[in-house]
Design a protein around this nucleic acid. Structure first.
Lengths: 338, 338
DNA sequence: CTGAAAGCGCTTACAG
DNA sequence: CTGAAAGCGCTTACAG
């Protein structure tokens, strides 16, 4: 095994001090008046020996790791994995690496992961904040750690975040169903304090109220897919007059579709369907399912823009930024009207 | 911001040496004959101050980071994200953290990621080896770095790996179609040197040959989904007599299904379908699609077992292990016979 | 223009 | 039983 090349090795071979070599490598040669000749000699040897600085030593010394922690409920959900991928791309362009984690809906696990992030000295945190972490995150923000939330926000916490217009887009989707003649529209969501879910619900309620219809709401526990399927089935068996359903998130929609299959419900023939979050399976349904699509690219773009400006300290004193992006309603066969 | 507690702080407060405190914290108290009283005092104060050792310093000193690098083509493919999740669970149980990365089918990017892994001093590497990394990985293995491959292997490289019986399971799936009366069975795969794809193809060819049928093979470039869809469409337009298709991997199957939709082909009525890799969308197709399912849990289990034994140095001199696991054929409506 | 040296926060061989 | 000290590989204030 080839011995790792050290800064010292370079310095020795060139009869220079470690300092000089370090300055050159870190692009601080000019500020330190190092001669062009010296610069060239260093860079040449660095290239020749393929010198790679030890990032652990650098991090220990500088306190920076060039790592950003990314925490969501479940990285395998398409919305989160899509964001993850885009963020990863943008981060690598800037020399940052993302540490991905899923809390799998366990507050305990989420706290542990946050601890691991701190442990690993991540430079920044990007999170769709898991439930129960409100206090933890408050403490974190107080330490001036760069934190950017997305998907949801904490109402009484002043942080930077990027979300979409949950209320408005759900209201629009509900209105779309109403316009197409549906009168008994159910809203299936989870039993949660998460702000984005509350906003989606209120968007639905607003449209229902504006049209003087009756709300029909099912809240299922957030956790267990089998249980959710059962809850949806029971609900639909009871609410015979229901002619349309809005699922408040992709995983809820999946469970709903699973319930339909088990019950032999045909989308559209029996029931109109709209999903919050768009994902490919919806296009493969028969008929394809109408969905509210979140603008992944714009979300990721905004998250990274804020994060990078925080990391570069460009806006130490700027107040925090809240970005609210619009969502798109992709209308498909499942809601095409009676 | 609360100042970080250091080892020195603990030692000072207890009037002990740093050495003693360190021994206690690292569970080496007994071997170093430290008194029970001292042990208790240290542990109590550690708990009280919530002391967290600086992992960067530990890593720099010990050369271990407790991080395992995980590299695949695309972490958002269900097969890979499923493995990723299971491995992550098993790793955290043992105090390891996984660094996830996707090479997105770029050899260049894959080499960079490997470089990042080295840079970050990961303790081990778990990879579905991207194409073009054969030489890189050889060098890596020569340095005695713990490497476990999965999904595919490099024929002339002696490493530990965990794969499934690609040839046998594809042969069985092909035979299943033949048994159900299909005579013109196409095999759609990618144009690649990846060993697992070669094995799947040869399993198909074996069954075809054993039954004296004619092979019908389409190789599409690995990269572009739109292009793949077009290639599949053209192929099916030409090969009118084709009555069944086997897709050699989940992403190929997705593109195939997309092509079907565009062409108005009905699964089963027009064409029997079998997918290598099972994923939920297949169950939602009408009729549901037969698939060869890889045993995710067993794969992840074996990968981690090998990796951990390597990390613990339990089997420094043991020869490398090759694990070949069986796959399961989930028979559904798409291949139920003519 | 360049170098000697301190220090980031640990671990551990060595000495007593 | 416990402690002083070297060292992991860097960065950077300070001195000249």
């Amino acid at each position: 095994m080839k011995k790792k090349v050290l800064l010292k090795d370079i310095a020795n071979q060139l009869n220079m001090s470690i300092t000089t070599v370090s300055f050159v490598i870190n692009g601080k040669a000019k500020e330190n008046n190092i001669s062009d000749a010296s610069i060239k000699r260093v860079l040449d040897l660095v290239a020749e020996l393929d010198y790679q600085p030890n990032s652990l030593a650098q991090s220990l010394r500088t306190g920076k790791t060039k790592i950003i922690g990314f925490l969501v409920d479940d990285i395998s959900e398409p919305f989160f994995s899509g964001i993850a991928r885009l963020i990863d791309e943008k981060a690598s362009e800037k020399g940052y690496k993302i540490l991905f984690s899923s809390s799998r809906n366990s507050t305990q696990k989420a706290i542990e992961l946050l601890q691991i992030f701190r442990d690993r000295h991540v430079d920044g945190y990007i999170m769709a904040l898991p439930e129960g972490l409100e206090e933890e995150i408050k403490k974190l923000v107080q330490t001036d750690a760069p934190v950017v939330l997305f998907d949801r926000y904490v109402p009484d916490l002043k942080t930077d975040y990027v979300i979409i217009d949950n209320q408005g887009s759900t209201e629009k989707a509900t209105q779309h169903l109403i316009d197409n003649g549906y009168k008994n529209i159910a809203f299936v969501t989870i039993d949660t304090e998460q702000q984005q879910m509350i906003d989606r619900l209120s968007g639905y309620e607003l449209a229902i109220k504006n049209n003087k219809l009756n709300p029909l709401i099912l809240k299922i526990p957030y956790q267990n897919s089998l249980d959710s399927i059962k809850k949806v089935s029971e609900f639909l068996s009871t609410e015979k007059e229901c002619d349309a359903v809005i699922f408040a998130a992709n995983y809820i929609c999946m469970d709903g579709l699973r319930a339909f299959r088990q019950m032999g419900i045909n989308i559209f023939d029996d029931l109109a369907v709209v999903s919050f979050d768009d994902f490919e399976l919806l296009e493969f349904c028969n008929p394809p399912v109408t969905a509210i699509a979140q603008p992944l690219e714009a979300i990721a773009e905004n998250i990274m823009k804020i994060m990078l400006s925080k990391l570069n300290g460009t806006n130490k004193n700027t107040s925090s930024r809240q970005i609210v992006l619009p969502a798109i309603l992709n209308i498909r066969g499942s809601s095409r009207g009676k």
